[in-house]
Design a binder for these strands. Structure first.
Lengths: 342, 342
DNA sequence: CCCAGTGCCCAAAGCGCTTTCAATTATGTA
DNA sequence: TACATAATTGAAAGCGCTTTGGGCACTGGG
């Protein structure tokens, strides 16, 4: 069933039917009713590809999903998507997801953009000096970046959390508790958030004349395995750290396993603060020792970004171009005073 | 840059350029080279919406993602998507994801199908007597169902795991270990896999003249909270179960927390077998007591379904219509002989 | 020398929709 | 009663692509 058939059925022109459906004012209310009724009966749905071709809009936002045979799926991605979806469903938007090899993201993004079947782009996994920014700017298509790109001029629309502030505050708390030996379990160093969090830690330490030892910084994929490995390394250090900053509750999961296996007690021998993206699966309060965290909901960020993206496409009012969300520092049981000097 | 411009630039007709790009034989090799070269220089990409409109194909597979403000995002969904994506990227396919209220899935699916921007559909979260099947059959669009629909004629293309067999085997193992009092922590009862797993447990029990007590069966969302709550309930039973069958490692996570909080030892006081979808975050071997599991990779299922879907769209050879994968029963430390009668 | 066959290429139709421009009828106003 | 004005509706162009149905220039066998 297409427009033509529907209009013939109704004895109207395609024009009128189209107008009736799209809420144009110049159509008689009685006629509109009749059209709507017929749509209900026939189950007619406009062909999106045709609509897109005719209007240039298609009610879809595009994103690329990094994936590869060895590539471990990322819980953060799913959670973020849920947030986007929550908002999208309210506006009858959908997503076009282009899977792409992680090394091919910039090309994939360009392909997606020029493919002509998305109205706006969402970009994540930002890196320092991210090469995608230049491309996006040249594109004349709305986009919002989740995160920022360290080292690039901040002249692009983004939503980010204050990673540096979060880790600065967390570090200060641990300092106040008397800790002197710190370690950082971070995400891959090329990612923006990792750079900023590291900076946050280092500047808090610097204020006390401390530095972050190279041996005490791990930059790796945020999986529980990597958390385990990193923590094992830390614990074997001659002068092992007593305070751990951790970029994700996923890493913390592995880290805590290592702590337990070493027979140490979390919150006493070792204090740990993790960043909490509010993953449904990894609630800090459900850890055997509830985790002190810096918190910011990934899902809420998804909702907000979808709002901005969709709002822009629909030309609904101005949106702030750049948002920086504060995180909350929530103290639970995984932090405690520094143990007495051995 | 569109076809028209490109062809004018080359002094060729749109026809020839189009043919050159799509690998038709009736175009001079030299001409084709010239076209390809121009494409490289101009960065021309065909408009997907126009292609779709003209050909009816667009290289995309559609799926609906259940989502709602309160709706907890599902790790299983993300993991499955990763599998789909891994295969899709090889064929330059993408996804169109329609977010939808969980109560609106059948309508959302129809909208997606008739929207005309997907070539095939993937359907999950199957229920008993699933109403979507009838709709899908009437659609004349390729689709593959992940799972099955209990109570419906099995005359549709699906890929499923042998849920009944898995839980039958798991139950038998526990019976052999001497357990007499069983409990089942399952997903929502309207879902197909939950029905079959339950049946598997019950038929194994029935062979020994045992039955599954109503108090010892929990059907709820597969979250760690629900796992915790269910297990707490089980443990308060006057004659508490010693053997637990668990539909997900996510549920197991909560369940084990309850076991620990009750001061009981997993694998001794309580034996537990969970189904393992091979989620990267929840490796059974990484639990404090490594989990005995029935295993089947969700991601592998995603890859396979994408193969079938894409293969069908591309008319590449026949694919089996129905696949039932066996699961593996992997014994680790969470199962042990039934404790002596108290 | 003629004609069927082959190799290449093009004009134009059509996919299903939106939107401009124009036509027709109804409604007031002078 | 006559004419400007508003209220509805339609015809047709166009979005960017694929594909059908020719057309033209060569070849080579008869």
């Amino acid at each position: 069933m297409n427009l033509k058939q529907l209009s013939e059925l109704l004895g109207l022109s395609q024009t009128t039917v189209s107008r009736a459906l799209n809420g144009y004012p110049e159509v008689n209310e009685a006629t509109r009713e009749r059209v709507l009724q017929a749509v209900k009966e026939t189950g007619y749905r406009p062909n999106k590809a045709a609509q897109r071709l005719a209007t240039g809009k298609a009610g879809s936002i595009g994103l690329v999903m990094p994936t590869a045979p060895g590539h471990q799926s990322d819980v953060h991605f799913g959670e973020f998507l849920a947030g986007l979806g929550e908002e999208a469903v309210r506006h009858d938007f959908h997503f076009v997801i282009m899977p792409a090899d992680p090394d091919d993201e910039v090309a994939a993004l360009r392909r997606l953009a020029v493919s002509g079947n998305v109205d706006a782009l969402f970009v994540a996994y930002m890196r320092g000096h991210d090469p995608r920014l230049a491309m996006l700017k040249s594109l004349s298509m709305p986009y919002v970046v989740h995160g920022r790109s360290f080292g690039s001029e901040p002249d692009y629309p983004f939503l980010d959390i204050d990673n540096e502030g979060a880790f600065y505050d967390a570090t200060r708390l641990l300092l106040q508790l008397g800790h002197k030996r710190f370690a950082l379990m971070n995400g891959p160093m090329h990612l923006d958030f990792a750079i900023r969090r590291r900076n946050g830690v280092m500047s808090a330490l610097a204020e006390r004349g401390l530095a972050l030892d190279e041996d005490c910084a791990s930059h790796a994929l945020m999986t529980d395995e990597q958390g385990l490995l990193a923590m094992e390394r830390f614990l074997q250090l001659p002068d092992r750290p007593t305070a751990i900053l951790c970029s994700s509750t996923v890493l913390a999961l592995g880290a805590i396993r290592a702590v337990n296996q070493a027979g140490l007690r979390l919150g006493e021998d070792i204090s740990l603060i993790a960043h909490d993206d509010v993953l449904p699966l990894l609630k800090p309060e459900n850890f055997s020792v509830p985790l002190t965290t810096t918190r910011s909901s990934l899902r809420a960020a998804g909702v907000r970004i979808a709002q901005r993206l969709i709002g822009t496409v629909k030309q609904a009012g101005p949106f702030p171009d750049q948002e920086l969300w504060k995180t909350e520092l929530i103290v639970r049981a995984s932090t405690g005073p520094a143990p007495q000097q051995r």
